[in-house]
Write a protein that binds this DNA or RNA. Structure first.
Ligand code: SF4
Ligand code: SF4
Lengths: 131, 131
DNA sequence: ATATTTTAAGATAAAAAAACTCTTTTTTAA
DNA sequence: TTAAAAAAGAGTTTTTTTATCTTAAAATAT
């Protein structure tokens, strides 16, 4: 019942961008230093964030990463979702992985509700709330 | 961001007890069969549930497991807490594991809030709500 | 008392997931 | 055309989850 380290790292980086110089590109190794995230691992995380449209990147000299939208428009949910996929709380909540009892399992229904509430909580907080 | 299989198994077993014959002892292998949980693994899970006072056990012939309190007085939180320890959402929220930034980290504070809400959600649902 | 049935406890093993690295390719700017 | 940067993906290590096995202890029936 925990977010992964990758998620925490992603939150740190995106959180940093909210305070950082607008529009400037930051290189992976700069971000690694600033946010205390292992450089190579950060590579993968940044790729996820780019792919889901939270960051944008530019290759080559003068390249790097920067926010691709306003901090107000990025929620904690977006970031966690981006690096670890959909939040499910329990395996049976993901399409196709239902256990044989799923149909009328009250636990299933309750956990689904808990998941909705959790996701809504995470959607309530945006990156500008982190400065 | 998921509960463990052990938690789901525990929920199934305790959920079953809510519908089962009151006061009767059920053996580990009966419960294993009924709830589709690997027998040996269930042993460990039942031990946790006994240790935290959700179930009570009796050894020897006529022995087994049964609820040690009313279904109304057992919450989903109690069960999950029993088998996987305190819910923390992020490592830095557990005493002594704070990262160097913890002191004034907004992410930390927000996740702590999310954790509280999640725990409260889980406390709202009791086992009798599962029948 | 003794055999039998059952949980308790803990060590250990296997499997899966998370955390992290490395290498090669592609893109860009100077 | 060269140097610097990210992209992509394979590969490794570590940690956690999941599960089993073995031995001990307790309770009961005979
Ligand atoms: S028992 Fe219920 S909650 Fe657990 S996996 Fe099956 S459907 Fe989901
Ligand atoms: S950066 Fe903030 S949230 Fe992440 S581990 Fe450190 S204190 Fe916790």
């Amino acid at each position: 019942m925990k977010i992964t380290k990758a998620s925490d790292y992603a939150l740190r980086v995106v959180g940093f961008f909210a305070t950082a110089e607008k529009n400037r590109y930051y290189m992976r190794n700069e971000l690694s230093e600033i946010c205390s995230v292992p450089d190579s691992f950060l590579g993968k995380i940044l790729q996820h964030l780019v792919k889901s449209g939270i960051l944008e990147s530019e290759r080559g000299k003068k390249g790097g990463f920067r926010l691709s939208k306003n901090p107000e428009d990025i929620t904690l949910y977006d970031i966690i979702r981006s690096v670890e996929g959909e939040i499910v709380i329990n395996e049976c909540l993901v399409e196709g992985n239902a256990c044989k009892i799923s149909g009328n399992c009250k636990i299933h229904n309750v956990l689904d509700q808990v998941r909705c509430n959790l996701i809504n909580e995470l959607k309530k907080v945006n990156v500008s709330n982190l400065v």
